[in-house]
């Protein structure tokens, strides 16, 4: 990846973090920490990987992206607005009475494939889309972004069994492995370790990556499928609340919303970064 492109993707990640901050502050909404751990993943997907057309969101052969951790909706709306699926000014409608920009992701927003919010729904739907594409000989790929906490849901493991059985090598799952779920550390609630080994045992192609390194993310996502005839999973090691010192690795920022003072400090910290 060129230095310029890397800088563009980093700038996109920064822009969507800033948008998200303002949105959750205005709405007094939760989940800013869960949004921030995904910023580079979304920047790489929407800035470098996904074959989508903001002018034609329903283009038949578009790549499909499903945010299964639907509580990170704010930052997905932000990246869609940055990509031109709808005007950036519409982001002020986030969580406002009567707005289609609901607190959990809504397919009534241009560019959103699937409404999510209840966990464990995205991967089964992604499997269906990938299977339909394969059997119809369509070229598109399906990307599903999962949280670590939602891997507690049994429905995910049904889908994790299903995808290799049907050789869904057009399916890429990305786990936002920030190690913190809603009410505790993943390790203390239901430990997922060894997560890569679990996926390997279920016959997935597996790679691990620093989920905040845009060039490493981009390189690996472009390599998928990691193994011929198998679905791919990229385990992205991330930091909850990444980018703002007082939010990083703090469980509280799953639920808290920044007040005016915290907002100002967070913006300052994000602006200072390259």
């Amino acid at each position: 990846m060129t230095v310029e492109h890397q800088a563009e993707l980093a700038a996109l990640a920064k822009a969507i973090r800033l948008d998200t901050l303002t949105m959750v502050h205005r709405a007094k909404a939760s989940h800013v920490g869960s949004c921030f751990s995904t910023a580079e993943i979304l920047a790489v997907l929407y800035g470098d990987v996904l074959r989508v057309d903001p002018k034609n969101p329903r283009w038949a052969d578009r790549d499909r992206f499903i945010l299964s951790k639907g509580h990170a909706a704010a930052i997905v709306y932000a990246v869609l607005a940055e990509r031109g699926f709808f005007p950036r000014r519409d982001l002020t409608e986030y969580c406002v009475d009567g707005s289609s920009l609901t607190g959990h992701l809504s397919h009534h927003v241009p560019g959103v494939e699937i409404s999510t919010g209840s966990l464990g729904h995205g991967l089964p739907i992604g499997c269906g889309m990938a299977l339909a594409a394969k059997r119809a000989g369509r070229p598109y790929r399906v990307f599903v972004l999962l949280s670590d906490g939602e891997l507690d849901e049994g429905s995910n493991w049904e889908a994790i069994l299903f995808a290799p059985q049907h050789r869904l090598d057009n399916l890429v799952a990305i786990v936002d492995y920030n190690k913190i779920q809603a009410f505790g550390m993943v390790q203390e609630v239901l430990d997922l370790a060894p997560l890569a080994d679990k996926f390997r045992a279920f016959r997935w192609g597996v790679r691990e990556v620093d989920g905040h390194d845009v060039s490493a993310l981009s390189e690996l996502v472009h390599q998928a499928p990691f193994e011929a005839g198998r679905p791919s999973v990229l385990i992205a090691h991330t930091v909850k609340g990444k980018g703002v010192s007082f939010m990083e690795n703090q469980l509280a920022w799953h639920a808290k919303s920044p007040n005016a003072e915290q907002l100002a400090q967070a913006i300052r910290e994000l602006e200072e970064k390259p």
């Binding site: 089964p124 889309m129 339909a132 069994l161 059985q165």
Partner: peptide
């Protein structure tokens, strides 16, 4: 055979997969 799937004893996945296939035009 290309339009039949035994999804297994997994009804949540069965229904989610069905939604995904249907939302792909089927």
């Amino acid at each position: 055979p290309k339009r039949f799937v035994n999804v297994g004893v997994a009804e949540q996945n069965l229904t989610g997969v069905a939604a995904g296939i249907a939302l792909s035009g089927n």
